[in-house]
Computed example of a mutant assay.
Amino acid sequence: MVSRRPGSYVCGIDAAVDVIGGKWKVLILWELARRPHRFGELRRLLPGVTEKVLASHLRQLEDDDVVHRQVFDEVPPRVEYSLTTRGVALNEALVPLGLWGQHNVIERTG
């Protein structure tokens, strides 16, 4: 994992939040859990994300060994993003957080 913060982490939650921090990273992970996607597909599946932010987050997730970027030797070139083993484990760890959100936020507003 590549730390984007100087110094050491205080605890495991601190390190995890460094990897998933921001609105878009967990949504990228959620979509990639379904199946590998190309960049354009991810952009369409995540309305509101800019191309610049999506590219930046995918690079960071790749640096953290959470997302794998595969380039296919085709014309035109094709690139697909998928979860690594570490990314699958991270998504599994996020399931309880998603359930908490459903029970404590969505149900109260819906």
Results as ranks from 00 to 15, higher is better:
H103S: 07
V49S: 04
S8P: 03
A55Q: 07
A89N: 12
G101A: 13
P36Q: 15
P47H: 03
V19G: 05
D73E: 12
W100V: 02
L97S: 00
L45Q: 09
A89I: 12
L97H: 00
M1G: 15
T84M: 06
L46A: 08
E92C: 11
Q70G: 01
L99E: 14
G101T: 10
G101F: 14
Y81C: 02
V75D: 10
P47A: 05
R5C: 00
K52Q: 05
P47F: 03
V67T: 03
G21V: 02
L32H: 05
H37S: 15
V53Q: 11
R108V: 11
I13M: 01
S56F: 13
W24T: 01
V10L: 12
V79H: 12
Q70L: 03
F72L: 15
V75Q: 09
G40A: 10
V49K: 02
V19I: 15
L61G: 03
V95W: 06
L42Q: 08
T85V: 07
L94A: 04
Y9I: 08
D73M: 07
T85W: 03
V19L: 01
E107Q: 13
D14I: 02
V49Y: 01
W30I: 03
Q60M: 05
E62P: 00
D65M: 04
T84V: 05
S56Y: 14
